[in-house]
Design a protein around this nucleic acid. Structure first.
Lengths: 151, 151
DNA sequence: TCTTTAATGAGAATGATACACAATCAATTC
DNA sequence: GAATTGATTGTGTATCATTCTCATTAAAGA
């Protein structure tokens, strides 16, 4: 959960015998320039890049997102749309969680410092190296509660 | 997050103009008789039922799992195997969370009462009706930390 | 018992993601 | 700074979980 620059990404990759490519650097930049509380799916990232004239293939996008999630650079969010979303994995005080309406998929972000502490402590106790920790609340929003019928 | 019997399931379904079918009752029973800390994927449930001579179609299984998750009877877990898992959504003191190794997918369950409190409070504050609340920790287990190379 | 319509089963369709492999190019070595 | 090595990319294809379609069946209420 650190802030990455192209340089620090490069050294972390090289440490493992891997490489910093223009594609990886570009994708990191996109996430760093994304408005707070904004997350992207693979497909959304692909089209966003296309719009900027950056032709990075879908395969590379999927590979890079997975790689960066496993490095702890990105968080992989399982919201409710049937595909994963990704966002920068930021430390306190930007770390946050998600409240999702299971009917309309509306998502609210919220912060709670004690959760990250709990996650850190739990991982530590088991000897795990923490990458990400997210509280996901599934619920029914006020609007959907009123619209009685459809589950 | 209540405990369900066939009868309470039936009345909750009927309230909405829906029906309790033998298939739904059977599936609820399977989860109720499952050992603690055990969860099932759709496919696993399908084969488990086959083994017991219960021929419930995969379609029905998928539909029922989704339905029960949206009713708050089951929790939908996004572990690391590329498909969802389901388990009974149990209240305190059985409520628990998951610590997952992103490399080998090993999963540990852990309890923490304050998280459910946080989730309840957060949902309430926003006027949401809580169904489930799970803290998911992504990390690297001790074994995979030692096996340096593969991410 | 009859009527209504939700639910099921079987198979086909969808769609997110992974894979295969030849071509490319980042990092390292000399 | 040219050569070498093997990680990475792009294209197309494959996979696999999940959803959909639709004819048939059967709960629930009258």
């Amino acid at each position: 959960m650190a802030l990455y620059t192209a340089t620090s990404l490069k050294s972390e990759l090289n440490e493992r015998g891997w490489r910093l490519t223009p594609q990886r650097e570009t994708i990191l930049q996109v996430f760093q320039n994304l408005p707070k509380a904004k997350h992207l799916s693979a497909e959304e990232l692909y089209h966003l890049l296309q719009g900027e004239g950056e032709n990075i293939s879908l395969s590379t996008i999927y590979r890079t997102l997975k790689l960066m999630a496993r490095m702890g650079i990105l968080r992989e969010l399982e919201l409710a749309e049937g595909h994963k979303h990704y966002e920068l994995n930021q430390p306190y005080p930007h770390h946050h969680h998600h409240l999702i309406c299971v009917r309309c998929n509306k998502t609210i972000e919220f912060k709670n410092d004690s959760i990250l502490k709990t996650g850190t402590k739990t991982a530590q106790k088991e000897g795990y190296h923490l990458l990400d920790c997210q509280l996901t609340i599934h619920a029914v929003c006020p609007t959907c509660q009123r619209a009685l019928l459809p589950i």
